[in-house]
Design a protein around this nucleic acid. Structure first.
Lengths: 134, 134
DNA sequence: TGAATACATGAACAATTCTTCATATATTAT
DNA sequence: ATAATATATGAAGAATTGTTCATGTATTCA
């Protein structure tokens, strides 16, 4: 993963170099990071967050999900396909109705933790973002 | 948020309608869902996941982050700008070196929970995904 | 003062994403 | 058998995203 232009000055900065090595030793490998990112990506869209939160409440069919979320049946179906592929939801059929439910309690946990996070963080919109070069 | 084509059959399905109303009553509002999705979106890219995981280990400067992650300084800077905007990292300057650290312990928590999730879930790659219409 | 270094940022590009539209498939009702 | 209903999916389009390239700004060194 080494790339051009990377770390030309680590050689002459001993303190940073040891820190870099220490952090690298415990850093997530590429595959783990990719899989982790994939799970969080599933939660990175407002409509999917609401869909998963709805399923955390009750098992629902596509039709009802569309009603609850105010989305079209097609849009809901597309999202469900993505979530099935990630094993985050499971389904059972009853005639021509398909009922969906969460297939992974970790998602419920992540949603709850995420809610805790944003509730404990209400940055004042009036404070301009500081930046290093100001 | 009501849209055309939504819920044409709830009227004649009493059981589902009451379920829909129940779920809607406790569903995340649009703003909450958007802010929640925003936080998860910050974790939805493999390079950002690794960056935040690195900062969970130690405070690092841009140069060292680039070395640790195998990314260019410019790419790291772009990611840091996004993370600053979301109040997920903070910085301090020391001469011309800028040191970054996590500004939100919830992120560390979310990363840990996410890791738990993917470690407890190793779906067999040989099992084809089932789908409702098979 | 000029050069070197650390870092930030805009433009560009390719890739990805989410919704709509159209349509296909499965199941039930007539 | 046909129509109606529930759901899935591909194509298309618009918007978004992450990296590279180029360059600007701040700070330190000679």
């Amino acid at each position: 993963m080494g790339k051009n232009g990377v770390s030309p000055h680590c050689e002459d900065n001993q303190i940073h170099e040891s820190l870099v090595r220490q952090v690298q030793a415990s850093l997530l490998d590429g595959l783990t990071a990719t899989r982790l990112a994939e799970v969080f990506a599933a939660l990175s869209d407002p409509s999917r967050v609401r869909l998963l939160a709805a399923l955390a409440e009750a098992e629902l069919c596509v039709h009802d999900l569309a009603a609850v979320l105010g989305m079209s049946q097609s849009a809901v179906s597309h999202q469900l396909r993505l979530l099935r592929a990630l094993h985050l939801v499971r389904y059972r059929k009853e005639g021509r109705t398909v009922f969906y439910a969460l297939d992974d309690e970790h998602i419920r946990d992540l949603l709850e933790r995420g809610l805790e996070h944003i509730r404990h963080q209400t940055p004042s919109p009036s404070i301009a973002e500081e930046r290093p070069h100001a």
